[in-house]
Design a binder for these strands. Structure first.
Length: 644
RNA sequence: GCCGUUGUAGCUCAGUGGUAGAGCACUUCCUUGGUAAGGAAGAGGUCAAGGGUUCAAUUCCCUUUAACGGCUCCA
């Protein structure tokens, strides 16, 4: 007999060699039908695998992440079985679960798979799933496994094997499919009730662009059709929030082939938002002791050699223009220009911290395949600033920048983000990172300490630093789930020396300042793209391009509507009149769809009493009020930058 | 940059080897209507661009270009 400790702490005895599934059955049949896998002593196991020693056990179902991942991993095997039956000779690489489903990478040889094959593959998978095939685990000596794949001519699995030790080799089979696999898997294929293959894509083998491109097939499965339907419904909803769709519908921005890829043209509505954001940034930065500067869009090659950017980023800069024997580059960052401003006048320690800010326009030649709506573009406007400070001042300065982020996040109601401490990778010193191991260590510790002291939760990621120092990135997710860096706060211990920046210390000796690069509002492009999705196009009053639309009941009240609108404009409220010859229902509908926060309906009653009938976007009729009352209220909401 | 898909009216999308269609938007007219779509008429397209096959190409093939889904990259 063995002793099994359950999650509630109770200990029960079972026959040696019983499985998690057997234990589930002893509790209830209903539970047993839901068990996908089990956590045994902290490790995820097959629910059917015999347990031979005392253990702690947690049964895993769809509601556990590990259970769900096991389900999707097993689905990937089922998909592979279907692919193998339709594409004989296919060689498989790996097929892991991912956030919303699973994929399998494969080499189809000279065969091609197109989206038309997906329906047939789904059908095949459904057939195979209904066979209730069990997932069978088999251990094998490494030598046998190597022989098996050598005979098969499968270089991919041989590559996987080369990283495994003897005694660790396990195979799983279901139906006619056998795969080298660590497992675990669900008990049998009948659990997989609803299947959707979502897309075909290319993916470099081992994620390295020098390697062969494999075919990656994505899918998602569920234990019931209802869950799949809900999932698909959710994806549809997410698409409605996509900033590219909303940006077009709301007249925020446009792009044009004649202008060029990734070059955003801000339309009047988008420009209003830009100006509001800049106003916020200027107020905030002025209060925090920043001075504003303005710098040109181009600079000579020599500056980017000094800065050290050219060797690292030449590929993603627009090629240089030649003028009178000099090469000029469009700037892809503002820092070098700002360093020149720092250097323009001698500095004493009394001048530090020296903080200069600019909404700088930079150009980056991003790879064409990476361009993505407003989130990844080639011309961007950065909420940039550089702080030059002493080592002693660093902590306070860096922390003040973090506080500024958090203040902004509160204004915009940003709650779903991840703070990422991005560190260097020691093996890439001198290649991707400046070769200063000691300074890296020192500054990384400084940054980590600021985060810890401020009680800000964060994750640490290696090999994501800037070439000149570690940084904190704020990671957000687009409506369709893509990850982006929204804002960034970086330490730079390198460029100060490259530019020979100095200040005279108390001891009358020249010192090099530390530099903080920061962009709490990121770029206009990415930030507004993010806001569009965050608000689903329903901007709070202070940001809304059109804040109020006055809707006359009929043309007879057009003059009154215009008078009301003019009065609003005098109080700096962005107001328009709907002067079309349409019925009020139509005007309301169209204004609702444009997500204008307030509609003021005016007819005979309102005109006679100098009032307006207020309607709130998405909420409906909010009653009659005097014009002055409405204005006072709106102005205070705008001034406070109220979230709603 | 790489793999795959797509490109038809301002927008969303049908359709076809014999020089194109809907809804919305737009223009004009009728209607002056009280809280999410009033009616009628009209205008609008080198069917992404270039080349090829064909008696004939928007449709089939090739190249280019752009967008989209991924991969790689992201100071």
């Amino acid at each position: 007999m063995i002793k099994i400790t359950l999650p509630d702490g109770s200990v029960r005895e079972f026959e040696k060699g019983t499985s998690a599934l057997g234990i589930a059955k002893s509790i209830s049949e209903g539970l047993a039908r839901k068990v996908l896998a089990a956590n045994i002593n902290g490790q995820v196991w097959d629910a059917t695998r015999p347990i031979n020693d005392d253990a702690s056990l947690k049964l895993l179902t769809w509601d556990d992440n590990d259970g769900k991942n096991t389900f999707w991993h097993s689905s990937a095997h089922l998909m592979a079985e279907a692919v193998e039956s339709m594409f004989p000779g296919v060689k498989f690489w790996v097929g892991p679960p991912v956030e919303n489903g699973f994929y399998y990478d494969m080499d189809l040889g000279d065969k091609k798979m197109s989206e038309e094959d997906l329906a047939a593959l789904e059908k095949k998978m459904n057939e195979l799933a209904r066979k209730n095939s069990e997932y069978l685990r088999k251990e094998m000596p490494k030598a046998d496994a190597v022989k098996y794949f050598t005979d098969k001519g499968d270089e991919y699995k041989l590559d996987l094997l080369s990283n495994l030790n003897d005694g660790e080799i396990t195979f799983y089979s279901q139906g006619n499919f056998t795969d080298l696999c660590r497992g675990p898997h669900i008990p049998n294929t009948s659990f997989i009730k609803a299947i959707k293959l979502t897309s075909i894509a290319g993916a470099y083998w081992k994620g390295d662009e020098k390697n062969k491109m494999l075919t990656r097939l994505y899918g998602v499965t569920f234990p019931s059709q209802k869950q799949l339907d809900e999932h698909l419904q959710m994806l549809e909803e997410a698409k409605k929030r996509d900033h590219r769709k909303l940006g077009k519908e709301l007249g925020i921005y446009t792009m044009d082939d004649d202008v060029g890829q990734g070059l955003i043209m801000w339309m009047p509505n988008g420009t209003v938002i830009i100006e509001e954001l800049e106003k916020l940034a200027k107020e905030t930065e002025q209060a925090a002791g920043y001075k504003r500067v303005v710098t040109p869009h181009i600079a000579k090659e020599s500056m980017y050699i000094t800065s050290g950017h050219l060797p690292y980023y030449a590929d993603s800069m627009y090629p240089p223009m030649e003028m009178e024997g000099e090469k000029y580059y469009l700037k892809s960052m503002n820092c070098p220009h700002h360093h020149k401003i720092y250097a323009a006048e001698p500095k004493s320690y009394r001048d530090l911290p020296y903080r200069i800010a600019e909404y700088g326009t930079v150009y980056r030649y991003e790879q064409s395949g990476e361009l993505f709506g407003l989130m990844r573009v080639r011309c961007l406007h950065m909420n940039d600033a550089h702080i030059y400070c002493t080592k002693e001042q660093f902590n306070d300065e860096f922390r003040a920048v973090n506080d500024m982020y958090l203040k902004y996040f509160k204004i915009f109601g940003i709650e779903k983000y991840v703070m990422r401490l991005s560190l260097h990778s020691p093996d890439k010193l001198g290649i991707k990172y400046v070769n200063e191991p000691e300074l890296w260590k020192e500054t990384e510790t400084m940054v980590r300490n600021v985060l810890t002291e401020s009680n800000i939760p964060f994750v640490e990621v290696k090999d994501e630093a800037a070439f000149y120092g570690p940084k904190i990135d704020v990671q957000i997710y687009s409506a369709i789930g893509r990850e982006f860096t929204l804002a960034t706060n970086q330490v730079d211990f390198s460029q100060g020396r490259s530019f020979k920046l100095e200040y005279i210390g108390q001891d009358n000796k020249a010192e090099t300042p530390l530099i903080i690069h920061r962009a709490p509002l990121g770029t206009h492009e990415r930030f507004i793209g993010f806001l569009l999705e965050q608000y689903a196009g329903k901007f709070p009053l202070w940001l809304a391009p059109v804040q109020v639309k006055v809707l006359p009941i009929s043309d007879k009240f057009l003059d009154y509507a215009k008078a009301v609108s003019d009065k609003l404009k005098k109080s700096d409220i962005r107001s328009e009149v709907d002067d079309r010859h349409e019925k009020i229902g139509k005007k309301i509908r169209d204004t609702e769809l444009l997500k204008v926060p307030y509609m003021l309906v005016v007819g005979e009653k309102e005109m006679n009493e100098n009032k307006v009938s207020v309607r709130i976007q998405g909420k409906g009729d909010a009653g009659v009020r005097s014009v002055d009352e409405f204005i006072a209220d709106a102005v205070s909401q705008i001034k406070e930058r109220k979230a709603e």
